[in-house]
Amino acid sequence: MTAGHCHDIAALCAASLDRAFRQPYSATVQTHSDTPVALPPLDSPQWQTSFRAFLWGARSVGSTVLTLVLFATYLGIGALAHDSGFSLGWTLASTAFVWAGPAQIIVITTLGSGATIVQSAIAVTVSAVRLFPMVVSVLPMMRTDETKRRHLILVAHLTAVTLWVECFRFLPQVPRNRRIAFIHGLGCGLVCVCLIANTIGYALAANLSQLLGAGILMLTPLAFLFSTARNCRELADVIALVLGLLLFPVAALLNSGVDILVSGIAAGTIAYGVHRARAVA
């Protein structure tokens, strides 16, 4: 058995362990692992340089439907930022440096509707916790004996739900020592797609009729609702989603400036309570 095989088996084990632990997302992972990925075989000379691996990663942006969803979402974020009074440069900076759709929308909607910096920061902090387990589960897939922590900083930055899902689909077909370069390529490709989508959305919101402007702004809630709904597998996730939607209008009556935080913590805690009650029963 070659070293390559060992790595492969290790990756498969990591992926299946991860599925077992992170059930809410595994539905998405399974759906996508059905589709074949057009990458060179593991022993191909195509993988000899990191630069080539980077290019293969960037090319893989074109072979996932999630790119389309991401494009629509960032088209909407561009339009949302425009209509909330932010500059295009600000919008692009938020995509490049935050690189998490939900956090960007929270910043835009809260700051745009007059919340303080501290209130926005708290809401973003809580919403971004989900990135922690994603990073924790993705990094072991590309570590080798020579990997230093600093080699993984950019991978950690690029990790968000889309990349997280795609890692499980693509990485088993990428030699382990080229995985970091491949993910850099894939992640940078996705960021570029989103920057372009931002710019188009921003320009469209500035120039379009109210009819099409409303249509573009509607992309964001629709894309987020369905991608979140798809990631739900446990009852707790479903309850959190449904209650989170229903409690927001109630919390908004308080007009506290942290309405999203109030409804989110209330709905999430109730959902967790149901999860506990079922576990005990």
Binding site: P24, P102, I106, A123, V126, S127, A128, V129, R130, P133, F224, L225, T228, C232, A236, D237, I239, A240, L241, V242, L243, G244, L245, L247, F248, A251, D259, I260, L261, S263, G264, I265, A266, A267, G268, T269, A271, Y272, H275
Partner: peptide, 10 residues
């Protein structure tokens, strides 16, 4: 995770 999902829903 439940709170993060509910915040996103909000």
């Amino acid at each position: 995770r439940a709170v993060a999902t509910a915040i996103l829903a909000g």
